[in-house]
Amino acid sequence: METFLQQTLNGLVSGSIYALVALGYTMVYGILGLINFAHGELVMIGALVALQTVTALSGAFPGLHPVILLIAGVAVAVPVCMAVGYLIERIGYRRLRNAPRLAPLITAIGVSFLLQTLAMIIWGREFHVFPQLVSTTPMQPMDGVVVSPLQIFTIVVAFALMGGLMLLVNKSRLGRAMRATAENHRVAGLMGINANGVIAATFIIGSGLAALAGVLFASNYAIAHYAMGFTPGLKAFTAAVLGGIGNLPGAMVGGLVLGLVESFGAGYIEHLTFGFLNSSYQDIFAFMILGAVLIFRPSGLLGERVADRA
């Protein structure tokens, strides 16, 4: 029972981070029908820029409160990622909007590797230690279950952001424009919506969420690295497909479910396979889920659209 609760908690923490990243994928997909491969790299850039800011600040003003450092790190990382996200759309994808559909996919892969290489040039190949800005001192609300303030913080922040995004999309003028553009660019344009502006805004919002997810991810694993965006990116994509790509609540549910499955899978895989497979196979679950969803329910848990809408 304790293991169960503990794994649930761990799953919720990683799941809420996946959900934040998955939202970026699903928003872009909903509007453009494009998988933005480079989205995972924004997670990495967010984490590394925040790390750089925190290191610089704490070097210049030692003794600064960690919370101020964290806020400063986020305050720099989010705009940087938003700018990068905007540039990706403007330079990489906009011109290819009417190209054969293989073209933007290949560009996206190129952008992803370009960002990784640039990060490698700027920050080097080594793993950087990400400082513990929110306390990780374990608390024990009940026997055998350990929670840290950081974990609670992660879940709270992620849920707050998701709530904010839902409000934005469902209640604001921009959100209505986004939904209209997702439905049909051309008609939205005829209704006086600046479709290019809306698409750019979508990229910017998604990138901001990715930056925050990057900071949370790096805080939880205490590490930042030029290639750290790849795996969470892939898993977040899986989460988006699991929930039904193009569907915002779906991305959130998909992220949480994926986090839970992974956490339980890693916890129990040794028992299930009689010790043949161990927790180093954790990363396989995401792909197995992806495969299973694509075979049995390609429209995802909450999706209504059919996956094949080419």
Binding site: I35, R101, L294, R309, A310
Partner: peptide, 8 residues
């Protein structure tokens, strides 16, 4: 399915 899924 659509081509992009295949890629992933």
């Amino acid at each position: 399915l659509r081509g992009d899924y295949l890629a992933i």
